[in-house]
Design a binder for these strands. Sequence first.
DNA 1: GCTTATAATAAGTCATGACTTATGAAGGCA
DNA 2: TGCCTTCATAAGTCATGACTTATTATAAGC
Lengths: 104, 104
Amino acid sequence: MALADPTRRAIFEKLATGGSSVADVARSLPVSQPAISQHLKVLKEAGLVRDEPEGRRRIYSIDPAGLGPLRQWLDRFWEGQLAAFKAFADSDAAAAAGPAKPEP
Amino acid sequence: MALADPTRRAIFEKLATGGSSVADVARSLPVSQPAISQHLKVLKEAGLVRDEPEGRRRIYSIDPAGLGPLRQWLDRFWEGQLAAFKAFADSDAAAAAGPAKPEP
DNA sequence: GCTTATAATAAGTCATGACTTATGAAGGCA
DNA sequence: TGCCTTCATAAGTCATGACTTATTATAAGC
């Protein structure tokens, strides 16, 4: 998971507010510029980020094409949780704790 | 993030199909029993899993009380993505690529 | 041409954490 | 009580990866 690292999530959220140059991202975080470049490389390979040269700078921004697969991934993940909840609802523990939700 | 590790996700998904003993989980994965116990400890501290003694075994299962916060976390996270998408929709790149979604 | 700004790569350090084997603790059963 | 099963903890190994400094490449301005 490319978004497991907190620094990478911070970079991602920073870019969520709009495209930024590498130096701009580096200034907003307590890490060096090469570290930012390395993180951006990972994010780019994961399809979550795109870059575009602008003069001698390079503007990074969220890649909207990557949001779809990410969304699907999260949805699939969450379906697992719902299945788990259903398994719980059908279990004895649910009866003991009191039903939090009526059976559909 | 307690679910960053793939082994821990496998354990979580295993428990999503129903409560299991530690040995049962260990049999379903190519890691030793102590490793499973250590992972379960992390998941338990994260509030994602609960345990209950049953005889000399210990049954672990998804903690439904932890699903709410997890859901909120995912939702907040995804809101960030939507904001990013909106930022993209308002940008020049969106105009160049063609609007994927009309402005609300 | 040369210098400066910006970003990527190289190379290496270091902490984190996932895993192992060995051992201890506690419950069920003869 | 002693034995066996089940799980947790201790202690240590080892790989991964996040970070650093140093260097290289490309674009802009003199």
